[in-house]
């Protein structure tokens, strides 16, 4: 079983994230929302319609950015959009207009007549997003939208996704990049082993599960002994000790003294990545 008794509700106009390690059930959840993977029980409604009985009507209002590139290699960027529009039954004239607009929106005008194999990874990803918008969807589902992209390409995609949100679109996305989730998501869930562990806004989740700040120091016996003495909670992360605390300066001072200023002590704000690793553990998946 890929997902087990999960429950969630996405609000209109928000960006909702699914986070989790490989095999957590994110992609399966996306495919169930897309009316592609069948479910063995429970109910799932999209736009208030049941996915089992109304798949065509739901899919006509969805935009999907899959994890794997499935652009059509037999055609150019522009014709990929036209042919995809045809699957939605969009008239040719209208499809041509939208294809031109979307290429401009995703900054692909210059690549209009280039075959898919000759596009870079970032361009392909942008074209897939353009393709997902061809039916003017009310809900956009993005499975790892920036996977494998360089920072420039990721920032461009983030900018475009934010502008889509500003126009009132609803976005559901999965990602492994926690900075991406923190930047984009209004609310998110963290999944593991097919279950939802927590749900909330990035800020609330950080406050609840990691505290405000993190003090990091090299792991030595003295440091660990001092932390035990102080009765502070700490996490071991390889050769680093992490202390999640609301009094970072006091803790840092204590630790600097304990290791006699021999090791570096850093104080930084807690991030979603801290929450993620605390909840799902540090062991490798798959």
């Amino acid at each position: 079983m890929a997902v087990d008794r999960i429950a969630f509700r996405v609000r209109e106009g928000e960006v909702f994230g699914f986070l989790g390690p490989n095999g957590a059930g994110k992609t399966t959840t996306m495919k169930m929302i897309q009316c592609i993977s069948p479910k063995s029980g429970g109910t799932l409604q999209v736009f208030g319609m049941d996915v089992d009985t109304h798949h065509r009507r739901i899919k006509s209002r969805l935009g999907v950015v899959p994890q794997e590139n499935n652009l059509d290699p037999d055609f150019s960027a522009y014709r990929n959009l036209l042919i995809y529009a045809r699957y939605f039954g969009i008239p040719k004239r209208e499809a041509e207009r939208r294809a031109e607009d979307l290429l401009a929106f995703m900054q692909l005008d210059e690549k209009r007549d280039v075959l898919i194999d000759n596009l870079s990874g970032g361009m392909k990803r942008r074209l897939i997003i353009a393709r997902a918008l061809v039916n003017e969807p009310e809900l956009l589902i993005l499975d790892e939208p920036t996977i494998g992209l360089d920072p420039q390409a990721r920032h461009l995609i983030w900018e475009k996704l934010r502008s889509l949100r500003a126009e009132g679109n609803t976005l559901v996305l999965t990602t492994h990049y926690l900075d991406e989730a923190e930047r984009l998501c209004d609310r998110l869930v963290i999944m593991d082993h097919g279950k939802i562990l927590v749900e909330g806004t990035p800020a609330d989740l950080i406050r609840e599960h990691a505290g405000n700040d993190v003090v990091e120091v090299e792991r030595t016996q003295k440091v660990v002994a001092r932390l035990e003495e102080l009765g502070l909670n700490y996490d071991l992360a390889g050769d680093v000790v992490q202390v999640f605390t609301d009094r970072p300066n006091d803790v840092a001072r204590e630790l600097l003294e304990a290791c006699r200023h021999e090791a570096a002590v850093t104080v930084r704000p807690a991030t979603l990545e801290d929450v993620f690793l605390r909840l799902t553990g540090r062991s490798l998946r798959e």
Partner: peptide, 8 residues
């Protein structure tokens, strides 16, 4: 896969 994400 790409096609069945549409109403087809």
């Amino acid at each position: 896969d790409a096609i069945i994400a549409t109403p087809v």
